[in-house]
């Protein structure tokens, strides 16, 4: 029962946001989509201890796959999500065979390079992807043939929230499974896990593939809700900001990914609208404050406060 409480809270927040900001649904949808992307990153960084700065490669490929599928094959949203997820998983599996053999700075650099190569490819294959103009002309069919995407984005928001729930629930189950426990073991000590017979390399590729599927789904959702895929889906900023949001919220427990994304994007949005020129100051100080003051992220804040109060007594 206790494990269902956060889900109930999540649903409550989603409903309240829907009625509180009826004219910002496009932004809220973007937040929800980014949450799915950051969840995929938490699976790697937080759970398994795989540090990557190339999540954009998986996210962007999901977006282009879903966009192309909608334009050329079938404009059904759910089928598009599956195609996007599959594309992300395939890219993650193939690149993971090389990437997962490395660690540390080398891994960070290689993941960045993979995303850059994809961006350059998408730019060059402009007969397919539209190049720098972006891939337009995406019109989605109604969800399950019933709910039409509307102009203010109500359907889009509810659809994205439903996908977020399903993804979070699945990842919760995965993390609690023996497979998930072996991932946690790999994070803490790869050598010991190898010693007790866990195929560490294969597990790392497996979890990278799973994260690729989730990131691909996030990309597909982005393509469907904005009806456009541009080269910026492969930007380094996508990967870097996802990492900032994850660490801001706190790693390893999925809820931190959701909280971090919501807080970061809200601060970003407010700061950019209050002062369009100097908002980077605020983001920069926010990031530094997290590293120096709450290294375990916002999710560790209650515990930290409790400990401080306890010390005072």
């Amino acid at each position: 029962m206790k494990s269902l409480l956060p889900f109930a809270l999540m649903a409550l927040v989603a409903v309240v946001a829907f009625y509180a900001f009826p004219y910002n649904l496009a932004f809220l949808t973007r937040v929800v989509i980014t949450m799915i992307l950051v969840l995929s990153l938490d699976l790697l960084i937080g759970v398994t201890g795989i540090d990557t700065l190339g999540q954009a490669a998986l996210y962007g490929t999901g977006a282009y796959a879903a966009g192309l599928f909608a334009v050329h094959v079938w404009a059904d949203p759910v089928a598009g999500l599956l195609v996007g997820g599959l594309a992300g998983a395939v890219v993650a599996f193939v690149s993971g065979l090389l990437l997962m053999r490395t660690h540390g700075l080398t891994l960070l650099m290689l993941t960045i390079a993979v995303a850059e190569v994809f961006q350059e490819l998408a730019n060059k294959l402009d007969w397919l992807t539209g190049g720098a103009d972006g891939l337009g002309g995406i019109t989605m069919n109604p969800v399950f043939g019933t709910w039409q995407f509307d102009f203010i984005g109500q359907t889009g928001y509810i659809y994205a929230v439903c996908v977020l729930f399903i993804v979070t629930a699945i990842l919760k189950v995965v993390i609690g499974s023996p497979f998930g426990l072996s991932l946690r073991g790999i994070k803490d000590s790869p050598a010991r896990m190898r010693a007790i017979g866990t195929p560490v390399g294969r597990r790392r590729v497996a979890v990278y593939t799973l994260a690729g599927a989730v990131a691909g789904i996030a990309g597909a959702l982005a393509a469907q809700s904005t009806a456009l895929v541009s080269l910026s889906v492969y930007d380094f900023q996508v990967s870097a900001e996802a990492m900032i949001m994850l660490i801001l919220g706190g790693t390893g427990r999925l809820w931190g990914a959701l909280i971090g994304t919501a807080v970061f994007m809200a601060v970003h949005e407010v700061a950019a609208s209050v002062d369009p020129f100097n908002w980077l100051f605020i983001i920069g100080f926010l990031v530094l404050a997290v590293v120096y003051a709450v290294p375990r992220g916002l999710i560790g804040l209650p515990e930290e406060i409790r400990r401080m109060v306890g010390r005072l007594k």
Partner: peptide, 11 residues
């Protein structure tokens, strides 16, 4: 490594 990446991105 991650806090280092994050802190230096902030800088």
């Amino acid at each position: 490594e991650l806090p280092q990446v994050l802190a230096t991105i902030g800088i």
